[in-house]
């Protein structure tokens, strides 16, 4: 594992703790998009089905289990939060899920000539999870643009997700150069996803960093 991927993973991990801290300490899920969190849960469940059949390392196994468990818990907390009407969580997620699923059926890493039926279904679900992750932040972005009183911790949560994406891009450059490791589906989707965060970072700069006490 190179430093770029490790920093990316740690930033991803930090994003979970930031969101959990916001939910637990403010006792409010205001400003948190249930739709984005439900999409992330879908992403992790679809992608980490290989948890059961492909052991890579304890690091990977534990991170996968944590990502699924933490996102499930976050979805549960936000969904059952009584103090959050989430009237602004209005993104039409079917416009994200259906195209991602259709694209995954046609553009994936399946090899029907070999491997079992179930392994190829897992490849389709892997591609689906990659495409869905790329756009899963859109409901949250829409909420941030509509809400006036977004808490800083929600913004820091988004920033850590953006840092995670940026470092994964560096990781892929490194791995392509030094290892020949190259998953074009993940890389293209990762670039799209990182570009979506560029929009957020402009907002972050204006609303958080410019307001920091000197």
């Amino acid at each position: 594992m190179n430093i770029f991927r490790f920093v990316g993973d740690m930033s991803h991990l930090a994003s979970f703790f930031l969101l959990l801290a916001k939910l637990i300490y403010t006792k409010s899920s205001t400003g948190v998009s249930l739709k984005t969190q439900a999409l992330y849960l879908t992403v992790f469940v679809c992608r980490y089905l290989d948890l059961l059949v492909a052991f890579v390392s304890w690091y990977n196994e534990l991170m996968k289990i944590f990502f699924i468990a933490a996102s499930a818990y976050i979805v549960y907390v936000v969904a059952t939060s009584t103090r959050n009407s989430n009237a602004s969580d209005t993104y039409r997620v079917e416009f994200l899920v259906i195209p991602a699923l259709v694209l995954a059926c046609f553009v994936n890493e399946t090899h029907w000539s070999k491997g079992g039926w179930s392994l190829n279904v897992m490849e389709i679900l892997w591609a689906f999870s990659i495409y869905l992750e790329a756009v899963a932040v859109l409901p949250q972005l829409k909420m941030l643009h509509q809400l006036e009183d977004t808490t800083n911790i929600t913004m820091h949560y988004m920033a850590s997700l953006g840092i995670y994406r940026a470092f994964y891009l560096l990781n892929w450059v490194y791995r392509l150069y030094y290892e020949g490791y190259w998953h074009p589906i993940a890389v293209v989707a990762g670039i799209v996803q990182t570009l979506l965060y560029a929009d957020f970072f402009i907002l972050y700069y204006q609303s958080v960093l410019l307001r920091l006490p000197s």
């Binding site: 990977n60 996968k64 090899h111 892997w126 994964y168 490791y181 993940a186």
Partner: peptide
């Protein structure tokens, strides 16, 4: 060998 190397990322 498969077209793509094994997926070992998160």
């Amino acid at each position: 060998a498969s077209l793509a190397p094994a997926k070992d990322e998160l």
